[in-house]
Simulated scan of single mutants.
Amino acid sequence: MKRTFRTFVGVAMAGTLAFSVAACGNDSAAEGGGEEQLTIGFVPGIASDPFFKAMQVGAEAKAQELGIRLLWQGAPDEYSPQSQLPFVDSMLTQQVDGLVLVPTDPDALQPSVTKAQSANIPVVTVDTTVTDQSYLTSAITGDNREGGRQAAQTLAEQIGESGEVFLMSGSPTATTNQLREEGFTEELKKYPGITLVGKEYANSQPAQATSAVNTILLKHPDLKGIFAVDGTSGSGTVAALRNAGKADEVKLIGYDAYDNQVADLKAGIYSALVAQKPGDQAALALQNLVDTIRNQNVDSIEKNVVMANVVMTNDNLAETEQFQYPTQ
């Protein structure tokens, strides 16, 4: 499947457009020989989120290596199908050669994958995925269920396997969040002295996490620990603990390794972080798409890829700080 792609059309939206084009390598049409330069579209969950910024860094580096054009578009600050779908539709309208997608909802984004299939555009999902993965070239993600288990194990150890804990989640539709919650709650069952007193969703808005944690601290003044399942939930939780003067009393396990999270880990506000490898996920997604389109190394493409996490603590930072998410 070879298409020459020359015009990039923005999405008409009421809000700000998060749009980036990385033109890498040479256009063979201009040189008069060789393979056409491929254009791969990449639609993240939230373009401004540090996790997806790190993913963009990895994608741009891989695009340069592969000599392809990377078209990066995403909603700037809202994690929802409503904000994401116009960007996906734009990619399909422009007939990109391949699409990398971070679905904000497994069902709501399924029709987009069906449209891509009708247009013969291969799709790889990263981080999250869709309900029916049969058409996907690959579904690439971190080990989210295991990450939830790791969070529970670490928290249990830090609070002496006894006390009340709270689960501060992100989006109820994100498959990653769902798996982290499941892993966390399953693992907690191994510790009869620990009571899970509640769960709330921040919907990827730190202020909502702050409000939820403020409320739980009032209801449960002896709370021993919190698991924040993503970076934005963690940021809001940190603010609540600081406001309540309980940053030294409540153990906080975070997910992801944003700059501010690692700084707060060093300051003792987080007691541990479960870090992913967003750049590696993005790079593998591009490699798999290029190999599929060019019909090369196809036997080595894995349909489902789960990448291991890294648990960061102050005790092991010398070895794990390298997993802090890059932003440029």
Rank of each mutant, 00 (worst) to 15 (best):
G234H: 04
G234E: 02
G234A: 09
G234R: 02
S235Y: 09
S235W: 08
S235N: 12
G236M: 02
G236T: 04
G236W: 02
G236S: 02
T237Y: 03
T237N: 06
V238H: 04
V238M: 08
V238Y: 04
A239L: 11
A239S: 14
A239N: 12
A239W: 00
A240G: 05
A240F: 10
A240D: 04
L241E: 03
L241K: 03
L241N: 03
L241F: 06
R242P: 00
R242Y: 11
R242A: 12
A244S: 11
A244Q: 02
G245C: 08
G245A: 07
K246Q: 14
K246M: 13
K246H: 06
K246P: 06
A247D: 14
A247K: 12
D248N: 12
D248W: 06
D248Q: 11
E249H: 06
E249G: 01
E249S: 15
E249Q: 15
V250Y: 01
V250M: 00
K251F: 03
K251C: 02
K251W: 06
K251P: 00
K251Q: 07
I253F: 10
I253N: 05
I253A: 07
I253H: 09
G254A: 09
G254P: 05
G254H: 11
Y255N: 13
Y255W: 11
Y255A: 11
D256K: 02
D256V: 01
D256S: 08
A257R: 00
Y258N: 05
Y258W: 15
Y258A: 11
Y258D: 09
Y258P: 00
Y258C: 02
Y258G: 05
D259C: 01
D259T: 13
D259V: 15
N260F: 14
N260G: 06
N260Q: 15
N260V: 15
Q261C: 08
Q261K: 10
Q261W: 11
Q261H: 15
V262L: 08
V262T: 10
V262F: 10
V262S: 08
V262K: 00
A263V: 14
A263R: 13
D264C: 07
D264K: 14
D264E: 14
L265R: 07
K266R: 15
A267Y: 08
I269K: 03
I269E: 03
Y270K: 14
Y270L: 09
S271D: 12
S271C: 13
S271Q: 15
S271N: 13
A272V: 09
A272N: 11
L273D: 00
L273P: 00
V274C: 10
A275H: 01
Q276F: 10
Q276E: 10
Q276V: 07
Q276S: 10
K277S: 09
K277D: 02
P278D: 02
P278I: 07
P278R: 07
P278S: 08
G279E: 07
D280G: 02
Q281V: 01
A282C: 09
A282T: 05
A283S: 12
A283P: 00
A283N: 04
A283Y: 00
A283H: 04
L284S: 12
A285S: 13
A285Q: 04
A285N: 08
L286V: 08
L286E: 10
L286I: 05
L286Y: 03
N288Q: 14
N288Y: 14
N288L: 02
L289S: 11
L289Q: 08
L289R: 09
L289Y: 11
V290K: 07
V290G: 05
V290T: 13
V290Q: 09
